[in-house]
Amino acid sequence: MKADPATQRRLLDLADVDTELNRVAYSRTNLPEHAEIDESETTMRAKQDAQVVAETALSDLRRELGRQEKEIDQVRARGKRDRELLDAGTVGARQVTDLQHELESLIRRQTTLEDELLEVMERTEAAEADVRFAEADLAGTREQLEQIVRRRDEALADLGTQETRHAERRAKLVEGLPADLLALYERVRAQRGNGAALLRARRCGACRLELDRVTVSKLKAADPSEVARCDECGVILVRTSESGL
């Protein structure tokens, strides 16, 4: 294959642009914010679970509070009824004794229930504090995640701008290149990751290996328009005054 030396040199600019496009693509998938977001989301899920546990514990305690308050109300109502019966003096002596014993039992039961209620109230206050802490902790993590997402989106937008700029430059460079030369370049780039490289001081700019004497002699004797390839890595070798031939 042959191509004008000036046209071949355009491949170097094309290779530079493709290198930048590869860098942009790599950066897009390897932004540090991606890992930070994954870590923050994992942390947030754990804190959401912690909040659910705290809220469940608080709900159970409030339900227990309601049950105990209802039971205390029932004991008080029973005691009030017994006292009213005693005060009314309408019951016999045997019933008076029974009512007095029941009142004593109800007073002891009320005292026990009120002590238990106080304990549950203290536990409820602690559980409410736990819920407030869990909510604040989760809110802090959510805010942190939102900040990371904003940084990621800004970085992606910047990379998108760079990609657009490089793609526009690539389109201009590709325009007018011979179809067979461009096809060779694209095929080599797909296989090797790099389509063309400068031959500088008898060394391939892609694999960095120095050409042997036989290859150098062949290139010296070759028509400048002949498209050369590196024997080691296969890229198109672009020859200039820097090639040392």
Results as ranks from 00 to 15, higher is better:
residue 162 Q to R: 15
residue 154 E to H: 01
residue 5 P to G: 13
residue 110 Q to W: 01
residue 13 D to I: 04
residue 83 R to T: 10
residue 56 T to Q: 15
residue 172 K to I: 14
residue 186 E to M: 12
residue 168 E to Q: 13
residue 151 R to Q: 10
residue 133 F to H: 09
residue 75 V to A: 01
residue 193 G to V: 07
residue 41 E to K: 03
residue 88 A to G: 05
residue 240 T to V: 04
residue 162 Q to T: 08
residue 242 E to M: 14
residue 84 E to K: 05
residue 239 R to P: 09
residue 68 Q to G: 00
residue 5 P to S: 02
residue 138 L to K: 11
residue 238 V to H: 03
residue 199 L to E: 07
residue 162 Q to L: 07
residue 59 S to N: 13
residue 60 D to F: 09
residue 46 A to Q: 14
residue 55 E to K: 11
residue 77 A to I: 02
residue 235 V to W: 02
residue 29 T to R: 10
residue 228 A to V: 05
residue 222 A to W: 04
residue 200 R to N: 15
residue 149 V to G: 11
residue 93 A to C: 01
residue 67 R to F: 06
residue 7 T to K: 03
residue 185 Y to A: 03
residue 173 L to P: 08
residue 55 E to A: 09
residue 64 E to N: 05
residue 217 S to R: 13
residue 126 A to Y: 12
residue 41 E to L: 10
residue 237 L to Y: 00
residue 224 P to A: 10
residue 96 V to E: 14
residue 159 L to G: 06
residue 245 L to I: 12
residue 209 L to Y: 12
residue 158 D to H: 05
residue 161 T to A: 11
residue 21 L to G: 04
residue 1 M to D: 01
residue 32 P to A: 01
residue 26 Y to G: 08
residue 152 R to C: 08
residue 67 R to Q: 11
residue 185 Y to L: 10
residue 42 T to L: 07
residue 212 D to T: 05
residue 100 Q to V: 10
residue 52 V to Q: 14
residue 34 H to F: 05
residue 9 R to W: 00
residue 129 A to T: 06
residue 40 S to F: 03
residue 14 L to N: 03
residue 195 G to P: 08
residue 55 E to I: 07
residue 63 R to T: 09
residue 213 R to N: 15
residue 37 I to G: 01
residue 121 M to K: 15
residue 219 L to P: 09
residue 126 A to P: 12
residue 72 I to R: 12
residue 207 C to V: 06
residue 138 L to C: 06
residue 162 Q to G: 06
residue 37 I to F: 09
residue 7 T to Q: 08
residue 238 V to P: 08
residue 157 A to C: 01
residue 13 D to Y: 02
residue 153 D to K: 09
residue 185 Y to D: 10
residue 45 R to F: 02
residue 104 E to C: 00
residue 149 V to W: 07
residue 38 D to P: 06
residue 211 L to M: 08
residue 42 T to S: 13
residue 114 E to Q: 13
residue 40 S to P: 04
residue 35 A to N: 14
residue 140 G to M: 05
residue 117 L to P: 04
residue 231 D to M: 03
residue 181 L to T: 10
residue 34 H to W: 11
residue 207 C to S: 11
residue 162 Q to V: 04
residue 64 E to W: 05
residue 63 R to D: 00
residue 202 R to V: 10
residue 223 D to N: 15
residue 240 T to Y: 06
residue 9 R to F: 03
residue 237 L to E: 02
residue 39 E to I: 09
residue 128 E to Q: 11
residue 15 A to D: 11
residue 11 L to M: 02
residue 41 E to C: 00
residue 207 C to E: 01
residue 82 D to L: 15
residue 50 A to K: 10
residue 28 R to D: 06
residue 73 D to Q: 08
residue 107 I to P: 00
residue 206 A to D: 09
residue 111 T to E: 14
residue 175 E to D: 15
residue 81 R to H: 09
residue 216 V to A: 14
residue 60 D to A: 07
residue 42 T to E: 14
residue 6 A to Y: 01
residue 10 R to K: 11
residue 202 R to L: 12
residue 129 A to P: 02
residue 37 I to R: 02
residue 177 L to A: 08
residue 193 G to K: 04
residue 96 V to D: 01
residue 24 V to F: 02
residue 166 H to I: 01
residue 31 L to M: 06
residue 214 V to N: 14
residue 172 K to P: 13
